[in-house]
Amino acid sequence: MRDWWQATFPQGRQSLTIIDANGYPVQIAYGEKGVGIPLLLVHGLGSWSYNWRHCVEPLSQHFRVICFDAKGYGFSDKPMYPERSDHQIIEMQRVINALCNEPPVIVAESLGALVSLGLAQAYPKLVKALVVVNVPIFPESLPHWGMLLLSQIPFELAQTIDSLRLTYLFAPLFKEVMAVERRSVLYDPSILTAEDLDWICYPFTQLPGTIAKAAQEVQIAAREIEHLQANKPNLISKIQSALGLIKCPTLILWGEQDSWYPYSDGKKLRDRIPNSKLEIIPNCGHDASFGAASVVTAAVLKFLQDIVPRD
């Protein structure tokens, strides 16, 4: 199997050290391609940079495209200690400070989009423009049975699964389960290839710690949603209440057939963010960065043509 990082980015997979939200140094995997204004592609829960595989090349013709794996995901470090609910916002800010010499355009999907909204609120001077795709901004529950299962697994059990390399030993079965899950978020499931599945599963089957960190992130999400529904303090309601503070140009993209979060959420989000636009993408499920990559890319470039000068 070819090295996706090497095939996609001129310098292949690179590594950056940041201080995480807990005060510890961690290695962040990233790749970049193109020159000019930086454009960050931010993945969602359980995913990694590979999900943007079809967007890197066309966007890199106009921008310096940077894909990074958030801590705990993909090829980045997976430290085994408790996390605060806003750790990704803090760590994304530190990635930007380390890699970008000017405020970047941020294009983010799903949980990454929620994190990016929080970043634009907390660090408004760090964001030139924002594109968010299928954002879990008004969730009522975890949207998938796999997430529900992970949310119930004790962290110690998830660590044991990792330490025994059970996902490696049962990789064919794991890939079959993952194939069902990934096809469920695509409008056209037939576009998912065997190579796609190999790379999507690679961190889970080959890189210890991935399952445990995925379980931890899902459990954080479950707790946040539970607190949101119970009107207890939580990060989601904090982001909701501060949406009016986002002043940068913002494009909201939503898959018309998103079975996880309805596109009516996109309309509510547009109404709360000043200077924002909403586009509903037809024939598109929750996984828009792959399932509707060409449409997403075209929408991003059209949105930015009058906002961000480029070559």
Rank of each mutant, 00 (worst) to 15 (best):
I89F: 08
L45E: 08
I66K: 02
G36M: 11
S49L: 06
M80E: 13
F75E: 09
S60I: 08
S60L: 03
L59F: 04
Q61I: 02
S76F: 04
W52C: 12
Y81I: 10
S47F: 04
A70W: 00
Q61S: 08
L41K: 01
E83D: 08
G44V: 12
V42F: 07
S49M: 11
D86P: 06
L41H: 02
H54N: 11
Q61R: 13
Q88H: 15
V65F: 00
I66R: 01
G74A: 07
W52L: 13
P38T: 12
A70K: 02
I89G: 09
S49Q: 03
V35C: 13
S76E: 01
S47Y: 02
S76K: 02
V65N: 00
F63G: 02
R64L: 03
P38F: 10
G72Y: 01
W48C: 06
Y81P: 01
G44L: 10
P82L: 14
S47E: 13
V65Q: 03
V56Q: 01
H43E: 12
V42W: 09
S47A: 15
A70Y: 00
G72I: 01
H54E: 14
H87F: 15
P58S: 09
P79Y: 09
H43D: 14
I90F: 12
D86S: 10
Y73V: 00
C55S: 10
C67L: 03
K71E: 05
W48P: 00
R64P: 01
V42D: 07
H43M: 11
P58H: 04
D69L: 01
E91C: 11
G46E: 09
P58N: 04
R64G: 04
D77S: 14
P82W: 09
I37F: 08
D86G: 11
S60R: 03
S85K: 07
V35F: 08
L45K: 06
F68L: 01
I37Y: 10
G46D: 11
E57P: 00
M92N: 09
G74N: 07
Q61H: 06
D86L: 05
P38H: 07
I37C: 14
